[in-house]
Nucleic acid binder design. Structure first.
Lengths: 148, 148
DNA sequence: CGTGATGGACAAGTAGCTTGTCCATATAGA
DNA sequence: TCTATATGGACAAGCTACTTGTCCATCACG
């Protein structure tokens, strides 16, 4: 069974991703941001990076422009994002996180750190760092998004 | 920035999971099973394990019984799954893969192996095996499912 | 044997996404 | 500079996977 490690790898990564999303989401909700779903996190990631328009966001998330526009509408309505004028393109609106949006981003970062902490403890800081290094070496280049 | 590796870890695992799902799905479709979506794979995993009822499947996938029933209906309609009498419970129906269902499962395994192959090549067989070992040590116990 | 739990089905509603169309503005070529 | 094509964004309608709610038949436990 030469491909056994490969199958194991897929299963482990998928299971791990599921646990991570679940763990992070639970903590973010507990932190008071209970009107968001995990998918919103991926939008925050792109918007906080800066310079994002709705179309950029759509491409990043791998959905249509309209889906992205609806998502942005929701985030604006809930006070996490605001649309500002684009400096050079009169058609476009630049997306920007509000203070509440930034607060949520910080909460998500904390949540991620907490969710990963047990893993770090299991392997030890050193071995965990190696693990991260190896994963980084695989160079997953795809945008971080809920792909199914 | 002590929590930097933790954040990196989350991002990497999530990106990797996305790429894997995408890669596997694409290959499975290319293998002729183009009437399935990635989520179906998680159902196949449980059903191929054996002894699954619709309710078992629902719990495994983390959805309601009705959602699972609809999914099973679809898989039965498309010829991947059949409902058989349960040996000891007259209420329940035992789910079983058809030959086509098994063929799809084999195709998915092959697809997973192929999708992971480049990673194996990048790290080398030895280091990759270590990586898998470390991931396994983290013991992601959650059911493998699309969690968002 | 009766009472609560469980597997499953039917019906209706919802939310997130899609396709299709349109307009205003930007960009490139003659 | 004028024209053609591409692009950001909005409006409308529809689809699909999922939900909640209800119900029945059967199981399991006192």
């Amino acid at each position: 069974m030469a491909e056994q490690p490969a199958l194991q790898f897929s299963a482990l990564v998928l299971a791990l991703a599921g646990e991570l999303v679940q763990g992070i989401h639970t903590r973010v909700v507990a932190a008071g941001f209970d009107d968001l779903r995990p998918a919103h996190g991926f939008a925050f990631a792109r918007i906080s990076f800066g310079g994002a328009t709705t179309a950029d966001l759509a491409e990043h998330l791998g959905v249509t422009k309209q889906a992205a526009a609806q998502l942005v509408d929701e985030l604006v309505r809930k006070g996490y994002v605001e649309r500002t004028a684009h400096p050079t393109d009169a058609r476009a609106r630049l997306l920007r996180l509000t203070e509440r949006g930034w607060a949520c981003t910080r909460a998500a970062d904390t949540a991620a750190a907490e969710a990963v902490a047990p893993y770090q403890r299991t392997l030890g800081a050193e071995r965990f760092a190696e693990l991260v290094g190896d994963l980084a070496a695989l160079g997953p280049k795809g945008p971080i998004r809920p792909a199914w």
